[in-house]
Design a binder for these strands. Structure first.
Lengths: 348, 348
DNA sequence: AATCGGATTTGGATCGATCTAATATGTTTC
DNA sequence: GAAACATATTAGATCGATCCAAATCCGATT
């Protein structure tokens, strides 16, 4: 039984019909008689038939493989894991399966897995690109007519759709909120300037300061790893300044948590003695103590949108490049010290 | 170009050879002349040829699809995300691709994705089963001769290999450590009793108490969600006992973080006023403040082992069921209050 | 009885690769 | 010069499904 795979021909013989009829049943064609359909279906179940999608897609010139590829730069980061989950949800309910590969920020690895996925016949690709990705890295795929959606980070010049969050608007909103609470010395901590996301969030920070009538100070921008450890490091540097900040917008939530850790290590309590705002709204942000005020990106929703966008393009046949910016909103919790105000979340 | 896919026949014509020769080149056969090989390779590159693995595996009776399936119960949990990354690493370097699907603890969803993966022709399956999974849920796959490895949780009665960590030994070791620090009122917080993992860790907790000559108290076992929020809840209940504990072993790290949050909300500092030990050793455990003392499972290494075990079985052709228990070790950091002692990590 | 038309069913070609066995091309040996 | 041999190449069948055009079936109509 394990040896000889059951094929349409086996079913046809057992049910006393031709393989063509079996094929029609598989496709749910209205041409086939109900009695025949029932008989064939029964036989399929009895013999434990498993559809061979590979053989099917081989024949179909229209080539819908029902597989999409998902390539992520860092799956150990909760943000991207949730992104993948969002994609998975949409993809699953559309009857697709997803290949998933992690690149750990290596462009080489990224190219390898994309090539490998292509060999297996993906009908679309979602990629959260490794840091140094350029347009020519995606050229081969896009030119083959395979729809590509970049998520989170975009690749300038690539002929594909992209889905990024409105980073500048997010940090700008955060700064205005802090200024509204009376802060005048607001820092921007964490992250490295080599990716576009950093540039955008930093720009928003500057815009927010200007909008609040506050001066921009170069020394209040402290870059570091985009991790919890990086946050500890960044707040350390910031607090050693002659004129230390009293509030900060962080590159992301991981940094923000690190900043909280660093503050406690100095005997300061985040939210009470210092205002901290994150970016991303990972799940732990809500549960943390104090709950983190942060710019909500909702990675899962973003993953879902990316998948929907991709599926739309796959079904349309033509890949119309579309650049979508998903809006963000500030979720005010406790770490910014606005605890006494009405929380926006409770209004929703 | 995007329309007509390039096939071996196109290559053959352009290179002035037969499709058979092209096929031999693709397989790196030593039969083909070096000059011919070079010529064919060049043409392949020029025409942008992409290997169609589906067509190849269709013909090969030996059916090595170079695809493995990975099914995870909760990818938003960092532990499982890292497990997937570990699998991915091994799988990638073996030239395989992985399907990845998240089940969110739904057995129905799990069955659907496994069926879907089968249709696409996976040559092996790694599954971290949804909570209510039974042996008969995996029967179809194992009977088809597809190697299956269950990771993290095992499915009693299923004819497949399994890879679980030595849960009982882990908690037992944690309890002995706390007892060695002088604690006598040690709780076990978090998790729900409906999964085997909980039972094992709880049993280890009991064994540890016995080994330390301490009594087992029913009310010191507080179950709750296996999440950060669950930890906050559990420590809340525990501290309202007439005779509250002074230390706890937690179901996992997420719970442990929640316990720390809950302690702070009560004005107690974890590590100083109360000893907390986690389980899993997720990445954040090291970076947290205070750094979390925890039983290290190293999910990434576990994922790698699972993948290696599966690949071994795929290559062997025969699926010899193997039950592997991976050993665990206590990583002493700060949250247990043993800060003044030499840290085991620094000895490594 | 012959014809018609809608409803079902079917044989054979086909997708892009691999496999088998056979063939072409040199080289060496007797 | 023919047989023997290794080296390179190739035609044609094949995997498991789908597609197309053609073949059946069957009750209704002429």
């Amino acid at each position: 039984m394990a040896k000889g795979r059951v094929t349409v021909i086996d079913i046809a013989e057992a049910a006393g019909v031709s393989k063509s009829t079996v094929s029609l049943v598989l496709q749910g064609s209205p041409l086939v008689n109900e009695i025949t359909r029932a008989k064939v279906s029964t036989v399929m179940r009895e013999l434990g038939y498993v559809y061979n999608r590979g053989a099917a897609t081989l024949r179909q010139t229209s080539a819908k493989s029902k597989i999409i590829g998902m390539v992520v730069n860092d799956l150990t980061n909760g943000f991207f894991a949730e992104l993948a989950v969002g994609v998975d949800m949409v993809v699953q309910s559309a009857g697709f399966v997803q290949f998933l590969a992690n690149t750990a920020e290596s462009v080489d690895r990224q190219q390898e897995v994309i090539a490998s996925m292509r060999e297996h016949g993906i009908s679309g690709l979602i990629v959260s690109p490794a840091r140094a990705t350029t347009a020519k890295d995606l050229k081969a795929v896009t030119e083959a007519g395979i729809p590509v959606v970049t998520a989170v980070r975009n690749v300038p010049g690539a002929r594909c759709s992209s889905l990024v969050s409105d980073n500048a608007a997010g940090t700008a909103q955060a700064v205005r909120h802090l200024a509204g609470l009376g802060h005048t010395r607001i820092a921007f901590l964490g992250g490295f300037p080599d990716i576009m996301v950093f540039e955008e969030r930093r720009r928003g920070y500057e815009q927010g300061l200007r909008a609040a009538g506050l001066p921009f100070r170069e020394d209040y921008v402290v870059s570091s790893g985009a991790s919890r450890a990086g946050g500890v490091e960044a707040i350390g540097k910031a607090m050693r300044l002659p004129d230390p900040p009293t509030a900060t917008v962080c590159f992301n939530d991981a940094v923000a948590f690190g900043v909280c850790d660093g503050l406690r290590a100095r005997g300061m309590e985040p939210g009470r003695d210092f205002a901290v705002v994150g970016f991303d709204d990972v799940i732990e942000a809500k549960a943390a103590v104090p709950a983190l005020t942060t710019v909500s990106v909702d990675p899962q929703a973003m993953g879902m949108r990316a998948a929907q966008l991709l599926l739309k393009q796959i079904n349309a046949g033509r890949a119309e490049a579309e650049a979508v910016t998903t809006s963000v909103r500030l979720v005010v919790r406790e770490s910014c010290g606005a605890g006494h105000k009405v929380k926006t979340e409770e209004l929703a």
